[in-house]
């Protein structure tokens, strides 16, 4: 399937880089992971003690700032405002993306018409659109949600499309030999067979959604986490700023790991414990 591989490569959804990543966070022994975190924290602490820059707080003061901001409620309040558009945008992008991707994978004219657009959107810096979004939708929830969708949709569409296009042909022949209908083929063969790659796309989409929402908050709408980062910086509260940024990165990592866990638990029973 020449078109399929062409898309993979242009879309930047290289299977090898993903497979390199898949499952990594689960497999490592706990001790090594703790050691790795410990070394990272130690390096951070030393760099902060030197200090490498006046704006580089130590690990301990960053953690203290994190606890302080959790306690005074500023961090939780910011997350409430950030997570709403993020969750909404990701859910919408998931439904739209899996739908469009499946359609394009199964229906040639749809593939011809839509896939190039998403290839362009995937390879191009769509972040440039975010200022534009504010022109139409102001600086509220809608603008933030749209920013999430703009960044998350292309990768979800392209992964779904790629997975549906490259579905195991021998399973399709099997379904035909037992007189499966087209619908049965799609729901009992194509989608289950495509689900690992679709899920990889969803994880990438969620990661892109985090980028989008933070970017929207930094660029246009002074609310949520982005605002907290800007505000802490303006007060030269670098520990607070680092704590906020670290918490976003930690949250996005935890979300991705949780998604993978859910995928294996709920949708891929054969991988459980194997």
């Amino acid at each position: 399937m020449a078109a399929g591989t062409e898309v993979d490569r242009a879309a930047g959804v290289a299977s090898l880089s993903r497979s390199a990543q898949a499952g990594r966070l689960f497999e490592k022994p706990v001790v090594l992971r703790l050691l790795s975190i410990g070394l990272f924290a130690a390096a951070w602490q030393i760099a902060g003690l030197i200090p490498v820059s006046f704006a580089f707080p130590t690990f301990s003061s960053t953690m203290a700032a994190f606890v302080r901001m959790m306690a005074d409620g500023s961090l939780p309040a910011a997350y409430v405002s950030t997570l709403q558009p993020l969750v909404l945008g990701v859910v919408l992008a998931t439904f739209a993306g899996v739908g469009i991707g499946t359609l394009c994978g199964l229906w040639r004219p749809g593939e011809w018409l839509l896939i190039p657009v998403f290839i362009v959107l995937q390879a191009a810096p769509v972040a440039a659109f975010i200022p534009l979004v504010t022109f139409i939708y102001g600086i509220g929830m809608t603008a933030k949600t749209l920013a999430v969708i703009i960044l998350a949709l292309p990768v979800i569409v392209l992964n779904t499309y790629k997975a549906v296009r490259n579905v195991n042909g021998s399973l399709l022949v099997m379904s035909r030999s037992f007189m499966g209908t087209r619908w049965q083929e799609v729901f009992k063969i194509v989608l289950p067979d495509a689900s690992p790659v679709i899920f990889a796309g969803l994880r990438l989409g969620v990661a892109a959604g985090f980028v989008g929402v933070v970017l929207a908050e930094l660029l246009i709408t002074p609310t949520g986490i982005g605002d907290l980062i800007t505000f802490a910086r303006s007060r030269a509260d670098y520990a607070g700023m680092y704590a906020t940024i670290a918490s976003v990165i930690a949250l996005s990592t935890v979300t991705l790991v949780a998604l993978q866990w859910i995928e294996v638990r709920v949708f891929r029973p054969e991988k459980r414990g194997g």
Partner: peptide
Amino acid sequence: AFVFQDFALLPWATVLRNVAFGLEL
């Protein structure tokens, strides 16, 4: 009924569901 060279089993389904798959369809 056809038996395939490469088995053509659903990797996400148990033996029981695979065996019953023709009837499921």
